[in-house]
Design a protein around this nucleic acid. Structure first.
Lengths: 214, 214
DNA sequence: GAAATAGTGTCTGTTAGACAATATTTC
DNA sequence: GAAATATTGTCTAACAGACACTATTTC
């Protein structure tokens, strides 16, 4: 029974775990709760509304962005208010801006405030899922703008996995996978400019797990 | 809005996709629906009942077995009756017997009857998940009795994956993984008796997916 | 001893992972 | 030309996958 915003008496709610990269850190958007605690943003499900619709509605109230990577995470509860809450996992690029006038705030996952209800449990699970999916699917691109350099991409992976990666091996596999293509543009900066790439959603986005028992 | 048994007016239900191996085939337990159609078994959620409790309750009404491998699959709906249904994925060994007096029947996944509502969609997803998990986790053992031979284990994999596997490679990896241990018993039959093994739940049950972008 | 099934070992190609030097830009 | 950053290639160990014969039991 995860905490919900504004609609305390509902049977069914959706909860959203919204991740983004800001200031060199993986951050989560949280809504103010009672007292000093914070909540995962959520809303009761409206009559006739599909689950994913409701999740998108919550999202629209939080952020200025219409498209986002959204995936059902897990359904919690059966006791408490709301009785059941369907948690969604959402990724937005750093470009996305919080909705004007909103009270939600970003928190680095490394420095979370106290979370009401089972918010901490949900968040931990979402984070685990993010790290796991990063390694065998292409979700990482959802956290980046449309054009990015390979060092930026690698940096994204390093932040989320909290682990240093070898530059040569990273580039080799990323390029060999065919999942990105050069845009022809370059990112100018202090040193040698970096080539920019874009994600190719048509490329195979998921990798076969290594078979334990083939 | 998956079909539910007996409790048409509920907001929230759990649906169970129950797999077992019988007669050399992967089979699913279905409940009779209206007319000639069949349903995935399910029940409305009771007040104060946790989701997994409800899934276990449904299970108890279907089969004589108290323990089963049970995992939340996906939550469907938002429209229709029931408004939302939480689907569970369940594996039981072939030993398990249907509850006496029950009306549910086993169907091979290769020859399913017409399914009401979005039963077919849920079942297809459950099957995909089973095959997928089989390759990187140890769920396969949940379909076998406590003691089994390596040929039996391989046969289980072949049935579910619908694919022939190399005996030598299969045995090598299965044994090297340390996930099974010999019981000292043997399975007698027509030819040379097979050594029996048991699953070691304490062994690492999941394998790192191959990193796409390490 | 024939039939049936269980059990075993090797070779090869691919890939993950470790590792250091060169290239291009700005100031 | 110094500083900063981007870009590139090789070697090795581990593992997946292909492949054929021997061992043990029953009848």
């Amino acid at each position: 029974m995860p905490p919900t915003q504004n609609l305390p008496g509902r049977e069914l709610a959706v909860t959203v775990v919204l991740f983004s990269l800001r200031e060199e850190a993986l951050q989560v958007l949280l809504a103010p709760g009672s007292g000093a605690s914070w909540l995962l943003p959520g809303q009761g499900l409206r009559a006739g509304e599909a689950l994913e619709e409701a999740a998108n509605r919550v999202l629209t109230g939080l952020i200025d962005r219409r498209e986002a990577y959204l995936e059902q995470l897990y359904t919690y509860g059966g006791t408490g208010r709301p009785a059941v809450s369907v948690a969604y996992f959402v990724l937005v690029p750093a470009e996305a801006q919080p909705a004007p006038g909103g009270t939600a705030r970003w928190f680095p996952v490394a420095a979370l405030p106290g979370l009401a209800g089972d918010g901490a449990e949900i968040l931990t699970y979402a984070l685990r899922r993010l790290r796991y999916k990063l390694e065998y699917s292409a979700v990482g691109f959802q956290l980046l703008p449309g054009e990015f350099s390979l060092p930026e991409l690698q940096h994204t992976y390093e932040i989320i996995l909290d682990e240093r990666l070898d530059k040569r091996n990273f580039r080799r596999r990323m390029l060999q996978s065919g999942i990105i293509e050069p845009t022809g543009h370059r990112r100018l900066g202090e040193g040698r400019p970096a080539r920019l790439y874009r994600y190719r959603p048509d490329a195979v986005a998921e990798v076969k797990a290594r078979r334990l028992f083939p």
